[in-house]
Amino acid sequence: MGRIGILLFLLGLSFSSLAQSVEINGYFTQDSARLGERVGFVLKARYPETTQLVFPDSTFDFSPLVLLEKKTFISQTSQGITVDSAVYYVSNFSLEPSVYLSLPAYELNRYDSVTYFSNEAELKLKLTLDSIPEQPVFQNNNVYQPLEKNFNWLLAALITGGVVVLLGGFALLFAKRIKAIFKRNREKLRWVQFERKFKKLSALLVQSPALELADEVIGLWKGYMESITDLPFQEWTSSEISEALGDQEIFTALRSIDMIIYAGKEANSETSTNYLLEVARTKYQEKLTQIRNERAAR
């Protein structure tokens, strides 16, 4: 009777460990695609609530596929089991009949990490032309075609030369203004793209303060600030950034989000991300003013 009890106990442990295992599943949203076509790859994970799992980001090597965009969703937890999912939009530029993709998920522990891979999903190459006939078939046509008249090369050369002279004069007169307008519009477009993505990631971080999201928010903000100020924000620490900009509130905001990344603690990130967005907006306005002043000085 004692042996039977021990056996049942071991079986219970086995079933418990299986119930607490990490399940990773991946599949394409369609079985075939044309060359360069945008295709979604769905990555799903089912794991215990106590486990911290991170999906790959844009630094992962998706070859021979090319990553276009990553779309994440809010985690769902029920009865101690968490379900996570993300969609990776990719394009295939390989001429192989089929390509395969398997993505990892990283379980973060205190001193190391464990990598789980999804099943290998297949994406077939869809050819635009099903087949090319070996012998081309020509249609009979005995209708006479009119002959083209001789082309007036002298007139064409004169017209082309006149257009080139006009364009050259226009470029000399308005080159600086056109360059300034181009720079200004480029900065406006970059700001709109940054603001839209930063607000989206910040909202997700407020709803689910996860390490990966916090890292994406900080990386996006530092990258934009570095591009608009030519200062090494990516290399600086939070205190160095605060000193360089002369704003102690920036250190507080960055420190709040750093607590999620490095300490794994939840924090009220909404106030911090709002302040960082306003700092970026101020630098953006300063950049536009600088471009306008450079144009006026010339």
Results as ranks from 00 to 15, higher is better:
L35E: 05
G36F: 01
G40Q: 06
K44T: 11
K44E: 15
E49F: 06
T51V: 11
L53K: 04
L53T: 02
F55R: 01
P56K: 10
P56W: 09
D57E: 09
S58Q: 08
F60L: 14
D61T: 08
F62A: 07
L65F: 15
V66C: 00
L67A: 04
L68Q: 13
K71L: 06
T72S: 13
T72V: 10
S75D: 13
Q76V: 13
Q79E: 14
V83F: 11
A86Y: 07
A86C: 07
Y88F: 15
Y89N: 08
L101M: 12
E107M: 07
V114D: 01
T115Y: 02
A121R: 11
E122Q: 13
L127Y: 09
T128E: 12
T128M: 06
L129C: 01
L129R: 09
D130G: 11
S131H: 07
I132C: 04
I132S: 05
Q135V: 15
Q139Y: 08
N140R: 13
N142E: 09
V143I: 14
P146S: 04
F151G: 00
N152M: 03
A157L: 15
L158R: 14
G161C: 13
G162I: 15
L166Q: 03
L167W: 14
L167S: 08
L172I: 02
F174V: 02
R177G: 07
K179Y: 00
F182H: 06
